[in-house]
Structures are given as C-alpha cells and as structure tokens.
Write a protein that binds this DNA or RNA. Structure first.
Lengths: 119, 119
DNA sequence: GTTAGATATGCGGATATGCGCATATCTAAT
DNA sequence: ATTAGATATGCGCATATCCGCATATCTAAC
C-alpha cells in the first residue's frame, strides 16, 4: 500500500505529470527538463527526485549530466502500470504538446545560462 | 490536464484508495464505508465526495441512504482507466482485505449508533 | 588544487490537505 | 409540524506540500 501511495502522490502534481510526458518522449538531463517546462532548476531537480523515489525513473551519468528516463523495465509493477495508463490520458494535452515542442529545441546546456548570467 | 490532475489527487490518499477497493466489491452507503474502514462519518462522507467530484463514483438514493458505487460506464476516460489499473495493484493488500472483511459484516445502520449513543 | 558547469538540498514562507467536532441539511414516518 | 435517522458541511487546527532562494555537492578540465 505504501508503495502504491508513494506512486499516486507522485502523480498528483501537474509539474510531475508534465515531466513524465516529456520523459515519454526521450531521456533528459535536468537542464533539458527546465527548458522544456520553463521552470527553475531546483523545481526540476526536486520533482525528478520525487518521481525517482516513487519508482518511475532511472538515472545514469553522462559526464557532468545526470540523465533521467522512464524505468519501463522496473520490477515496480505499480509504476509501470500507472505510466502506461497515463500515456494515453496525457496524449494530445495542450500543455504537454508545448513542453515537447520546447524539448525538441532544448540544448544540453546547464542552468547557469538561465539563472546566473549576471554574475 | 485539470481533469486528470483532479483524478490523480483523489487517488493520492490512503483512505480514498481503501474506499475505492471497498466499492470494487459492491455499492455502499456512507455508514457501510465507515464500518468497513473504521473511520468517522465526516471522514467517510468527505472522501466519498472527493472521489465523486473526481469522476470515479456515481450516487443514487435509496430511502434515507445515499448509495455510492464505481462509475464504470463514465464518459470520464481518465477515471475509468485509472480504476482499472488500481484494481490489480490493490488486489491482495493486507489493509484492504480487512476492510472488505468488515464490509461483509457491515449493516446498513446509520452513524448515529456510533457517534451519538450518549445523547 | 582550482575553476566552471550541472545537479542536489537546507531553509523559510505561502498555500493546500486531512481530520475531528459540532451543526446543518435532507428523507421518511408519524 | 415534529421527530429520528442518514448524510453533508462550516470551522479550526495540525500537518504536508510546493516553491524560490541561496548554498552545497559532484564532475570534468586545466
């Protein structure tokens, strides 16, 4: 029950639903998620972390980047089943279409360009 | 998106997951839900209301009772799809097994017996 | 070691949530 | 109209959630 609750709580937030939809498209680093959703770095990182802890994502390192992707082969049946349901339910949604469009134009540059271009 | 969010938020609570599991068994009035989950009347009523507003339930009156049941034929695809996923994920859960056991023994007597037997 | 870039996290504040308590509303019967 | 039973709801409190800000951590390159 606790595992399922953790998963449903993770899904009960618009930012995280949007992140999942972006990750349905392809593997992303944090800075790409930021750009796609037009949100802050800490917000992207935190919500990715929540999805990860709920069993939806896996990560790997590629140099300075941490790449997040959907864990479709997880032994966490809960997460896999719920993502499969969500995929159809989110398809065609206005917001997520925009997110994916911005993702397509996103570059793997870090958050520094966004939040620290003054110093 | 707002419709989906409303649904996922409704599912992000243990009490409501337990209520859904009980309703997967059969149609219930509020006082039966109270007895099955061993929770207060206001808690049962409120959470049923949240599930209803999220599109998971329908209601009908039977005399003094309001009967809640899963709205399996809803045009709310979101709710239908999510409940279908949940059904498998909750099957066999310890807590919900107990809830269903108590439901089997529940009687359609009102909350008065529980909360107002002193006055 | 130092530096710069990429990500994670402690903290505080605003807001949302879940609950119990008490009470209001609604129904049926008299 | 009155009463009793069944359900809904206003209110207040305790707690949880979400976010931005600032900072810490980690990696790679020098």
């Amino acid at each position: 029950m606790q595992e399922l609750l953790k998963a449903t709580r993770a899904l009960s937030d618009e930012t995280r639903l949007r992140i999942l939809t972006v990750l349905l498209e392809r593997e992303c680093c944090v800075c790409e998620v930021m750009q796609a959703l037009e949100i802050s770095q800490s917000r992207a990182s935190r919500n990715l972390c929540i999805l990860f802890n709920a069993g939806f994502l896996r990560t790997r390192r590629d140099g300075p980047w941490v790449l997040y992707s959907l864990d479709t082969e997880s032994d966490n049946h809960v997460a896999v089943a719920l993502v499969n349901s969500l995929e159809g339910l989110l398809a065609g949604n206005e917001i997520t279409v925009l997110d994916r469009k911005r993702l397509a134009e996103a570059e793997r540059v870090g958050p520094g360009c966004v939040s620290r271009n003054t110093g």
